[in-house]
């Protein structure tokens, strides 16, 4: 079967689904819509249920938006081959890792089962962790050891070794994030042309954005050494490559790092005075790259993943607007929150 025919169904599916992406005017409007309009327009009736607390309503909205995203992910994986499906499912497993972090935090703070459970996402079978077994663990080490006998063994092993030696949650969560992104990079390596080129571009868009924020935060907020900062970063395959990261982490100030950035990140971040200022600009850069992949790539899997990334960003924006309304914030604050949303980074 020819490449075109092979990808035809998936490409058509993605094109049909892409009509669901929010257009700029809707994103603009989100900050100004009242809760009732949000509930009505996005079919979230639970938001208006006065019998439940705002926290429960917030949680219900978040859960239903994530389920929507993951149900679309599962629909897109149906026509995919083994490698394509594995990559897309691995991307979606970030939600399982959010659950893992929630479990770890819960165990560290000795929260009871209900408190932890209330903060877990309900995930489809292909993506979720063996939550029931993990709940039985009495502490973090036991939890990670249990996770080591399953598909997350690489992440769990790395996290356990780090935790055994450092005994601090930062290193543990950094190890989980690092292993997740390294896993995605490895998945991309198995593809041939034209998929690999576009998938590299797509994953790199996320990695460049997230990597630079991590670099700035670890180096200048957490005051980690250059070598430790570098160790926790994941080199991208386009802009922030290994060599560039090695050079950037060795610089001594925020401004020096921004000045030494390669294009197009340098232009994007020009005149930024803080990480908070850089964050929306980097997010814009990532979104532009992802949109480009969705519009131009001949690779079905790259377009499918690009669609999911954009859809996730839209839904995060919607959730930010809902959350702002539930907390009683005014339009200006909600508008600001919408600009801070980065592709691939949820609030968990």
């Amino acid at each position: 079967m020819s490449q075109v025919a092979d990808q035809a169904y998936l490409n058509t599916r993605v094109s049909v689904m892409a009509t669901r992406l929010f257009d700029p005017s809707l994103i603009e409007r989100l900050a100004h819509l009242p809760l009732a309009a949000l509930a009505d327009e996005f079919d979230l009736a639970a938001l208006l249920d006065e019998h439940i607390t705002p926290a429960v309503r917030r949680r219900a909205a978040e859960q239903s938006l994530i389920q929507l995203l993951l149900s679309e992910l599962l629909i897109l994986t149906r026509p995919m081959n083994v490698n394509e499906r594995a990559l897309v499912l691995d991307w979606g497993r970030k939600y399982a890792l959010y659950n893992l972090k929630t479990l770890i935090r819960g165990k560290l703070r000795e929260l009871d089962r209900h408190e932890i459970n209330d903060n877990l996402f309900e995930l489809p079978e292909h993506i979720r962790l063996p939550d029931k077994e993990l709940f039985g663990a009495e502490n973090v080490l036991e939890l990670l050891r249990r996770l080591e006998v399953g598909p997350q063994r690489q992440i769990a092993r790395q996290a356990r070794e780090v935790y055994e030696q450092q005994r601090e949650p930062f290193a543990l969560e950094a190890a989980i994030d690092q292993r997740y992104f390294i896993g995605l990079v490895h998945r991309v390596q198995v593809f041939g042309a034209p998929h690999q080129e576009w998938l590299r571009r797509l994953i790199s868009a996320e990695l460049d954005s997230i990597g630079l924020i991590w670099l700035l935060r670890f180096r200048f907020t957490y005051r980690l050494s250059p070598s430790e900062t570098y160790y926790w970063l994941v080199p991208s395959m386009r802009v922030l490559t290994r060599e560039r990261l090695l050079r950037l982490v060795d610089l001594d100030s925020f401004e020096q790092v921004l000045d030494a950035l390669p294009e197009p990140l340098r232009t994007r971040c020009a005149d930024c005075g803080s990480i908070a200022e850089a964050q929306p600009r980097l997010a814009r850069h990532a979104i532009d790259e992802i949109r480009l992949v969705l519009a131009r790539s001949p690779s079905g899997v790259a377009r499918a993943l690009a669609y999911l990334m954009l859809r996730e960003t839209d839904l995060l924006g919607l959730f930010a607007a809902i959350q702002g309304r539930l907390l009683g914030f005014d339009d200006r604050i909600i508008q600001h929150a919408l600009t801070q949303i980065e592709p691939g980074v949820t609030g968990s």
Binding site: Q154, R157, Q158, E161, Q178, I182, S225, P226, S227, E228, Y230, Y231, R242, L245, L246, V249, D250
Partner: peptide, 16 residues
């Protein structure tokens, strides 16, 4: 060192 950590470690020790 676990094999999967080698490349990152190599870069990090170079910085040190």
């Amino acid at each position: 060192v676990p094999r999967e950590n080698l490349r990152q470690l190599e870069g990090a020790v170079t910085l040190a």
